[in-house]
């Protein structure tokens, strides 16, 4: 957390149109170059909402989103951020839409202006790096839940992002695939923020920690999680940490 933050959220408040309470209340969050942060909080506390606010998919009620120090207001301002920040959706089905895996992974590079042959190379290399080459020709909607998640990650990584926002990446993954994912993530040379309820996973991948509850964010360190986790080995359910 030495250099100036890449992503900076200041006093962000948000409320969905049909709700009474603020789901985020003056939230302050930052993510610096190479910082690895876990984001935890109970179900429905607004973690996904927070990611969508960062990407500019939702407009905050008040507060500012900054990317590399620049305030982002309109849809246009988010252009650079969207090129450099990759968001892995909570539901992989939202992310995959091309008929075959290879085409889906190549979709981003093509949009970024790569020639077809180049895009194909990038896509194949990305799949290879993730150990997914065997899925190349498969039809996306026939993949298993875990495979979909990994392919969705590949579609993001193929765009060579500087920052990753991962929304519950370990859902649907078996133990072995989870370990592989940890290896992949730890091998990446970029900043990321991960939403997860899986403490082991967060301890293995992140150093810093944000806890979101009742609209407020507190920051901490994953080592807190560690002690907490060992006190409650079955603590997979989100609950309050009080002083985390």
């Amino acid at each position: 957390m030495t250099n100036a933050p890449l992503i900076l959220l200041q006093d962000i408040s948000h409320r969905y149109a049909d709700a009474e309470n603020l789901i985020l209340n003056k939230v302050h969050i930052s993510l610096s170059e190479h910082q690895r942060v876990g984001l935890i909080g109970p179900n429905g506390c607004g973690k996904t909402t927070l990611f969508h606010l960062i990407m500019g998919l939702l407009k905050p009620l008040s507060g500012t989103v900054r990317y590399k120090g620049k305030v982002l207001a309109g849809d246009k301002d988010f252009g650079e951020l969207r090129e450099e920040v990759g968001l892995l959706f909570q539901d992989a089905d939202d992310q995959l839409f091309s008929p075959t895996v290879l085409e889906d992974v190549a979709f981003g590079p093509l949009n970024k202006g790569a020639a077809p042959a180049e895009a194909r190379d990038i896509a194949q290399q990305t799949l290879k790096d993730l150990g997914l080459s065997h899925l190349e020709r498969r039809i996306t909607h026939h993949l298993s839940g875990g495979e979909k998640k990994l392919v969705a990650l590949a579609t993001i990584l193929a765009m060579h992002p500087r920052v990753l926002l991962l929304d519950e990446p370990t859902n649907n993954l078996d133990q072995q695939t989870q370990s592989r994912l940890i290896g992949i993530i730890n091998g990446l040379d970029l900043a990321f923020m991960i939403i997860s309820h899986d403490y082991d996973f967060l301890v293995a991948t992140c150093e810093d920690l944000y806890l979101l509850d009742k609209g407020h964010v507190t920051s901490g360190h994953t080592s807190h999680l560690h002690t907490h986790h060992h006190a409650h080995p079955h603590g997979a359910h989100p609950h309050k940490h009080g002083d985390a």
Binding site: R82, G86, F107, N111, K112, P116, A119
Partner: peptide
């Protein structure tokens, strides 16, 4: 709802109203 999220996902991956193909 899903259509909306798919649209968002496409936009985030740089879709600008033009489908490109690998088989060009």
């Amino acid at each position: 709802h899903r259509a909306d999220r798919v649209r968002q996902a496409m936009m985030l991956r740089g879709f600008k109203g033009r489908f490109l193909t690998l088989n060009d």
